[in-house]
Design a protein around this nucleic acid. Structure first.
Lengths: 212, 212
DNA sequence: CAAATTTTTGACCGGATGGACAAACGTTAG
DNA sequence: CTAACGTTTGTCCATCCGGTCAAAAATTTG
């Protein structure tokens, strides 16, 4: 399906990296249609034709960005496995997702933009890779429920709500900071969010009968 | 500050309404920059110059849409008051928000688009009206906590997480449906989500000591 | 009906934007 | 030095898009 990755010199690699970094900044802020090649070129410190020497089309930059994003984006969920204690596993999943919202807000917004617009470029991936990954993790969670390790609830919507609450702090960051104001909206907001989410999910999920 | 609303004939009102309906469809899908006047005009069944006879600029449509949206959008939160039982109040707030995600997904996406792009047009409103509304409701929630009606937790992030989880079903609807698949992703998904969220928030918030 | 007013449309304009291209520039290898 | 190759840039083009305008069509008013 994919063409073989062409050989590239070290300089080409670096320039392409520079462009991708700049494009991430621009795309995540203005969306695909709202961003211009000129903006990206300027952010990357080069001229438009020069940028087009490294990426032939605007879409090519976007595609590369999205593709690269998805690998790192799903990593936390991939790491969720059934070897550890369920509550510990879920806690560190939530924490990792929140850390990603804090450390990679641009990636999160790029993804959000894509989904908002109907996911035209990644629909197959959502229905394929993502769907089966979630199914795999849902199975694990169901096992935990059957074993009485966590309360019975809907595992799909549990995952959705973890996604929603954590990504909210990246995608809606402007709103969060505006509402919290200067006092509460500083860097500490992620600590507060982490504490809150841990309490929300883990107290909500902890079995009432025999808390061990 | 605002110019007085000009007198309009019934026909003008209807046409403007038609245009706003079409624009909501288009803007919520492609964002402001990604939408063209031609698209909106075609969706409204009229020519571009004709549309521009009713709205002089593209921005004017968008502003009208956003302004109208915000009133209805914050209505559920406004209704949250301290007269009823706290858990009942929160339950119906969550339910109303989820119903809005189900019944007005385009409005939700329009709002999400605006926030994602840094809220350039509504920042003052976020820092003003929204902030003080949230502060007001945070005070109520704090009272409930002091009175032992609900567990102590961070009221700001409680509100954020209600926003995040409910709006997720509108903004990320494509992803939700893709992951759930045809079986689970039907209309029942909102019922499932409602049940899950109620359990998540209310069990998580219910005081452990004396549940009454 | 006829004048006045409102609504609709085709044609057009100017600027922005994605992209092409050839020439210039720089670097490396013989 | 110079030929070959990789990189950079100025210029240009076609298209898209927001918005204008005058004239035609429809509607209302007298």
């Amino acid at each position: 399906m994919n063409a073989p990755a062409p050989r590239r010199t070290r300089i080409q690699q670096e320039k392409r990296e520079l462009i991708l970094e700049a494009a991430l900044e621009v795309f995540s802020m203005h969306g695909f249609r709202g961003s211009t090649i000129d903006q990206i070129a300027e952010a990357a410190g080069m001229s438009k034709p020069n940028l087009l020497y490294y990426f032939r089309r605007k879409e090519e930059i976007h595609e590369t960005l999205i593709q690269r994003l998805l690998d790192t984006w799903l990593a936390p969920l991939r790491e969720l496995d059934d070897v550890g204690d369920p509550l510990t596993e879920l806690r560190s999943y939530i924490r990792r997702k929140l850390e990603m919202a804090r450390d990679y807000p641009r990636e999160s917004r790029l993804f959000a933009n894509e989904i908002l617009q109907g996911a035209p470029r990644i629909m197959p991936l959502l229905e394929g890779e993502l769907k089966s990954l979630v199914e795999e993790k849902v199975a694990i969670i169901k096992d935990w429920m059957r074993a009485g390790k966590i309360v019975r609830t809907d595992p799909w919507h549990l995952i959705f709500s973890i996604w929603a609450t954590t990504q909210h702090y990246a995608d809606f960051d402007v709103q969060v900071r505006a509402v919290l104001g200067p006092d509460l909206g500083g860097e500490g907001r992620f600590e507060d969010a982490a504490r809150f989410l841990e309490q929300l999910f883990l107290d909500g999920l902890k079995p009432k009968a025999s808390p061990n």
